[in-house]
Design a protein around this nucleic acid. Structure first.
Length: 510
RNA sequence: GCCGGUGUAGCUCAGUCGGUAGAGCACGGGAAUCAUAAUCCCUAGGUCGGGGGUUCGAGUCCCUCCGCCGGCACCA
């Protein structure tokens, strides 16, 4: 084993319908998890749901259900979505699990014992209709958007966490771990914000009861922070074996919740005497046909719709290739189909297809032993080896789109190589030595491509390996060093050209 | 308002330590026929937002103006 890798998605609010935003974070985590697994590391990949809070409590009431029953009915939607998207998580955590209560309680007790939690008064704009506080920004001219009534300035007793006490320590953390927050511009934003004064954090409520009671005052229920964020510890059975093995985690989050993960969460951990996370990466948002995603205006794409357009792998590929990882992107059906057709069907799919067809025709359907390798053959091998070195560097920097770009350099090179060597001409001329070299190089380079691509589009990766006469799953478990080497595919292996990888004629792949 | 970023070919963007501009896509032309009519080759004369400065020489450094974008966190 080469070490461990622990990656998390945020826990999602189960009241939502899983849509492209959830899918993006989750797929990106899945790709990183698969990559590290491919690299021979032991991987723990956590996702789940955040099930406490006033909104859930109210939604359950509205549906005339017991809160727990109501929540239970919402969870399959998420699990189902992840299964369809081929997400290989290690654990699906729910904040309503008893184990989680224990972890949250312990963290609260530790912070309390440290003197980081104190009783105070929270003052805010309160809408009686919603029974909730709102920030200035969330109000229209001081009025609640739902009830259109003036929010009242009221105060209530709540416990605070001394976030302000951790300002310096957080800044030190960012200095000590240069890539703690990524991308770099986000690090700057957070640092700048922290240069100013920060307020302590209200961590309890008395206005609802669906949550975890404070261990030192059970009139109060834990408000989001200690509850939701602590899931990352519960996920690895803190303080048990998995925790010892996998912590600290890499958190992948949307840019909207970066503050929580890069400021509040590390401060909480410091207070509880627990190691801070390894890294927090904030990705961008998707627009839909250039418009902000909005449920009310129908500008949402849920996961079933996403997959229905061009299949699972095309969807996964699109999300990670279309936009530089970390920046915002625009989703449209046309753009997705274009990616599927141009990159996946025409370039990758067709490369496999033309190679295997010719291999059947000119090499009796077997991987040939190479003939004498000339300069142009060797150039392809050299490039493949170079790419095998570059991709891990990009994955290490979480540059997922960059990694795909690099992999496609190889795909493009191989199509060029086919055209340049023109095996159909070689066949007419009876140049079997060169033909053997060409198909030896091509099949091996395609094998490498399949390996590189497998974290992103796992189904396709395995299919290609299968067509090369290999057992895809077994292959991918062998460790990157071996898989990225040249000469793994043994001469004489019988290829099995299968169905076209990305058929274009149907708009519905599945 | 404060902080930060950005403005480069029709579109999306690369441009490292300053030395007279690059890629992908789209468009146009051609080659080839193994393949999912897929692939490959050729074609970009863009005042590098405006102006000023430093320098032998500036997308590349400095100043200034204009435009656009992001952050300003108890938005669970």
């Amino acid at each position: 084993m080469k070490g461990t890798f622990y990656i998390t998605t945020p826990i999602y609010y189960p009241n939502d319908i899983p849509h492209i935003g959830h899918a993006y974070t989750t797929v990106a985590c899945d790709v990183l998890a698969r990559w590290h697994k491919l690299n021979g590391e032991e991987v723990f990949f956590l996702t789940g749901t955040d099930e406490h809070g006033r909104k859930i409590e109210q939604a359950a009431e509205k549906n005339k259900k017991k809160t727990m029953d109501f929540v239970n009915e919402l969870i399959p939607k998420f699990k189902d979505a992840w299964q369809k998207l081929n997400i290989g998580y290690s654990r699906f955590i729910r904040t309503t699990e008893p184990e989680h209560y224990a972890v949250v309680t312990e963290m609260l007790n530790k912070s309390f014992a440290n003197g980081d939690i104190y009783l105070g008064k929270y003052e805010g704009n309160y809408c009686t209709g919603c029974e909730a506080y709102y920030t200035e920004k969330e109000l229209d001219d001081g009025c609640c958007r739902i009830h259109k009534t003036k929010a009242e300035l009221i105060s209530e007793e709540t416990y605070f966490f001394k976030l302000s006490a951790y300002r310096e320590k957080l800044l030190e953390l960012y200095e000590r771990v240069p890539h703690f927050i990524m991308p770099h511009t986000r690090m700057n934003e957070i640092k700048n914000r922290l240069k100013e004064e920060i307020h302590d954090l209200s961590i309890s409520r008395t206005s609802f009861s669906w949550g975890i009671p404070l261990p030192f005052d059970n009139k109060h229920v834990t408000y989001v922070w200690f509850d939701a964020l602590a899931n990352y510890l519960t996920g690895v059975d803190y303080p048990g074996e998995n925790y010892a093995k996998f912590w600290p985690a890499v958190h992948l989050v949307g840019k909207d919740i970066l503050w929580f993960h890069s400021v509040i969460w590390p401060a909480m951990l410091m207070s509880a005497g627990i190691k801070t996370p390894r890294r927090v990466f904030a990705h961008g948002w998707w627009t839909f046909d250039k418009e902000k995603i909005s449920k009310s205006r129908g500008k949402v794409i849920n996961i079933d719709e996403l997959i229905a357009i061009a299949g699972v792998d095309a969807a996964r590929y699109f999300l990670l290739r279309e936009t530089t990882f970390g920046q915002d992107g625009d989703f449209s059906t046309e753009a997705l189909l274009k990616r599927r057709d141009a990159d996946l069907a025409n370039e990758l799919g067709n490369l496999v297809s033309r190679t295997l067809t010719m291999c059947e025709k000119y090499c009796e359907g077997k991987v040939p032993a190479p003939g004498t390798l000339d300069a142009e053959d060797k150039a392809v091998i050299a490039k493949a080896q170079e790419i095998c070195k570059k991709v891990p560097e990009e994955m290490e920097a979480f540059n997922l789109s960059g990694a795909l770009n690099t992999i496609w350099e190889l795909v493009k090179l191989l199509n060029q190589y086919v055209d340049k060597t023109a095996p159909w001409v070689l066949a007419k001329e009876g140049k079997t030595d060169k033909i053997n070299s060409v198909f030896s190089v091509l099949t091996e380079a395609i094998r490498i491509t399949a390996v590189l691509v497998s974290p992103f589009i796992p189904e396709t990766g395995e299919k290609i390996l299968g067509q090369l006469g290999l057992d895809g799953k077994a292959q991918l478990g062998q460790g990157y060093e071996k898989l990225a080497g040249w000469g793994v595919l043994a001469p004489g292996t019988v290829i099995k050209k299968g169905a076209v990888l990305f058929p274009k004629d149907k708009t519905n792949a599945k």
